[in-house]
Amino acid sequence: MKQTIDHAIVLIPSLEPDRRLPVYIKELQEYGLSRIVIVDDGSGNDYQDIYKELEECGCTVIHHSINRGKGFALKTGYDYIRENISGYTCIVTADSDGQHAPEDVYKLAVETKGHPDAMILGVRDFKKAGIPAKSLIGNRVTSAIFAALYGKCLPDTQSGLRAFGPKLAERMLDIKGERFEYETQVLITCIRSKIPILTLPIQTIYEDENRGTHFKAVRDSLKIIGILGADFMKFLSSSVACSFVDIVIAWALLDWMKPYMKGEDFLRIMIATAFARSVSIAGNYLLNKSMVFKDKQAPGHSLIRYLSLCVFNILLSAAGVYILHVSLGYNEKTAKLLCDGCLFLLGYQIQQRWVFSREEGWFRE
C-alpha cells in the first residue's frame, strides 16, 4: 500500500521541454505527488503552450525570461517555496527529461520521512549496459575525485533526483553556483556541515541516448571537476606558501643568530626551527580558515583542533617513516615523502570535516 505524501513538494527545473513532460507530471500525480513546482528556465515562446498545459494540470509554473542555469532555477524554486508554501515535509528535485521514474520520485519522498535532516540521493547503476559513454565517464571521474577529496564514496554525484526536509531547504539558497556545478557544491556543503548523505538505488533511464539533456559533457564536466578541486588547490597553495615562509624565516634566523650564539648550534637551530614553524603554522591556520574552508566562526575550537591535528601529523609521520624504514626497508627520504603525502590528503579531509566543520551553524534558527 502506498503511503500518503500529500505534503511533499516536487521541484522540477525545465528548459525547452517536449510533450513527454505533461505525461510525466500526470504519472507523478498518480503516485499522490500533487504539489509540483516547475521552473521554466528561459525556454522561450515556443514552449509556453506546454507550460500552460502544466498549469492546467495543477502545477505551479515560474518563468525566467532568459536561461539562468539549473542551479539558479532550483534556487528560484526554493525561494518560491519558502515564501509561498508552508507545512511541507520534504522537497524532491527531479529532472524534466524523463530520467527519473515517478515511482523513484515517490520512493525518495517516502524515505525522507524517516530521515528529515539528511540528503537523500537517488543513485543510478552505471554497471548496466546501454549507458551513454559521456554519462558513464563523467560520473566515474567525478565520483572518484569526490571520494578522494571528501572521503565519501557516492556512485552518482551528478544525480538530479534528491530529497530533503525543510531545514535543509532553508539553506539551499546560501550555496554558491548557478548551473550544473551547483548540485556538486550542494554535496560538498553537506559533507563539510556533517549532513548525512544517504543513497537510494533508482532506475537507470536514458531515452534516445540521452540526447534530450542540456548537460554539456566536456564543458559542464570540467566545471564540476573545477568545483571539486578548487578548494583543494587553495589548500595546496596555502601549504606551499607557508612551507616557503617556514624555510625563509628559519634560514634567516640561523644566519642572524650565528654571531651571537657561537658554540651553541643545537640551541640556535631549535630556536630558529620553533619560531619559523610557529609563524608558518599560524599563517597556515589563518589562510585555511579564511580562504580555503571559509570558516566565519570565531577562533576557538577550530584553533585547538588545528593544533591537535599538527601534533597528530608529527607523531604519525615519525611513526610511519620508522615503520617503513626499519620494517620494510624503505629509504628514509622516500618513506618521508610517502608518509607526508598521505597525511597531506588525510589532513585536507580532517580539516574540512572536523577542524573547520560548519555543523554548528547549519541548522541555526
Rank of each mutant, 00 (worst) to 15 (best):
M233C: 12
K234V: 04
L236E: 08
S237R: 15
S238E: 01
S239P: 01
S239Y: 09
V240P: 00
V240E: 05
V240I: 13
C242R: 08
F244S: 15
V245S: 05
A252R: 00
L253K: 02
L254H: 13
K258A: 15
P259I: 01
Y260F: 12
M261I: 08
K262S: 10
K262G: 08
E264W: 09
F266Y: 13
L267Y: 12
L267T: 14
L267E: 10
R268Q: 00
R268L: 05
I271M: 11
A272F: 07
T273A: 13
T273M: 10
A274P: 08
A274E: 11
F275C: 14
A276P: 02
S278E: 07
S278T: 15
V279G: 06
S280D: 07
S280N: 05
A282S: 12
G283I: 03
G283W: 00
Y285I: 03
L286G: 00
L287H: 09
N288P: 02
N288A: 06
V292N: 13
V292Q: 13
F293Q: 03
F293T: 01
F293E: 02
K294H: 04
Q297V: 09
A298T: 12
G300A: 02
S308R: 11
S308M: 13
C310P: 02
N313Q: 14
N313P: 10
I314R: 04
S317M: 01
S317L: 00
V321H: 05
Y322I: 07
I323D: 01
V326N: 12
S327M: 13
S327W: 13
S327T: 11
G329S: 02
Y330S: 08
Y330G: 04
N331R: 12
N331I: 11
K333E: 13
K333A: 13
K336V: 09
K336W: 14
L337N: 07
L338A: 14
C339F: 03
C339E: 06
D340Y: 09
G341Y: 05
C342H: 05
Y348E: 02
Y348L: 01
